Simulated scan of single mutants.
Amino acid sequence: MAALDNPDVELDILHGINGLADRLPGPVADTVAFLGEYGIPLALVALVCWAWFLVRRHADAATAVAGLLWAGIAAGVARLVNIPIADFVARPRPFVDHPGELTVLVEGKGGWSFVSDHASAAMAVAIALFLVHRGVGLVALALALCQGFTRVFVGVHYPSDVIGGFALGMAVALLLAPAAMAVLTPLVRGAGRTRAFAWLTPRPASGGVAEDDSRPEPRQKTADPGLAA
């Protein structure tokens, strides 16, 4: 399929965001490029780990931990789903369509431009995290938006590539979540009962185990018959 048409407004946005790279000091632009390529994905992984630390002792920890596992799996599924989409659309990257017009801060990028793998994976993780823990999820959503911005900033994606990536990641994380949770939750619950994976959903040290109702109740004192009138 031929490349997508690029309205003037999209090219204006592309040049405006990518043009920041020329106006910023070199080290700052390189830092933004590094964060977009590696830093933000690593930060999202750290957020998943932090969310596990927050929910691992909750009453319904198995469901929450399953949701965190789905966050990572959803990112991978979004990338897999994008393979046929990218081949079908076959949109060249912006620096290929417009040679010499952009400042490309990430070298060696091949493949098609639509949709952005980084954007789709980041949004999939963010949405899945939001379903588990709203506070951590909001931070992840902010990072996902920054991820999309950096892909345009470094000159390897059009804005619509990023928007398409966000839509794909959100669709995967939401639409496939019920089926994924139906499988992952019992797996996590079962694994948590084993010695090897008990750390996934550790029980609270106190107050988390119900009292044993099988213990005999103390015997009631009865009056001495000899004292009866």
Rank of each mutant, 00 (worst) to 15 (best):
M1K: 13
A2W: 06
A2I: 07
A3G: 15
D5V: 13
N6M: 07
D8P: 10
V9H: 10
V9L: 11
L11A: 04
L14A: 03
L14Y: 05
G16L: 09
G16Q: 09
I17G: 03
N18P: 05
L20P: 01
D22M: 07
D22Y: 08
R23A: 12
G26W: 08
G26F: 06
P27A: 11
F34E: 08
Y38V: 14
G39L: 06
I40M: 05
L42Q: 06
V45T: 11
L47V: 13
A51V: 05
W52S: 04
W52M: 08
W52T: 03
V55R: 13
R56E: 12
H58R: 15
A59C: 01
A59L: 10
G67W: 01
G67Y: 00
L68Q: 02
L68R: 04
L69E: 02
W70R: 04
W70F: 13
A71C: 09
V77I: 15
R79S: 13
L80K: 10
V81E: 03
P84I: 13
P84K: 09
I85P: 02
F88M: 14
V89Q: 06
V89Y: 03
A90M: 09
A90I: 07
P92L: 08
R93C: 08
P94N: 10
P94E: 09
P94I: 03
F95Y: 13
E101M: 09
L102V: 11
G111A: 09
F114C: 02
D117E: 09
D117T: 11
A124F: 09
V125Q: 02
V125W: 01
A126H: 01
A126W: 00
A126N: 07
A126R: 00
I127T: 07
I127Y: 01
A128D: 02
A128M: 09
V132E: 01
V132L: 06
L138G: 15
A142R: 06
A144R: 00
Q147T: 14
F149S: 03
R151F: 10
R151V: 07
R151S: 07
V152W: 00
G155W: 00
V156N: 00
H157T: 06
P159A: 11
S160Y: 12
D161N: 05
D161H: 04
G164K: 00
G165S: 08
G165M: 02
G165F: 00
G165T: 01
F166Q: 02
A167E: 04
M170W: 12
M170H: 05
A173H: 03
L174E: 11
L175V: 15
L175Y: 06
A182C: 11
T185A: 15
P186F: 11
L187Q: 08
R189E: 15
G190L: 14
T194E: 12
T194V: 12
A196H: 10
F197M: 14
W199F: 15
W199V: 10
P202C: 12
A205T: 14
G208L: 07
A210H: 05
A210T: 08
A210M: 12
R215G: 09
E217N: 04
P218V: 04
Q220K: 05
Q220F: 05
Q220M: 09
T222Y: 06
A223F: 07
A223D: 12
A228S: 13
A228C: 10
A229G: 12
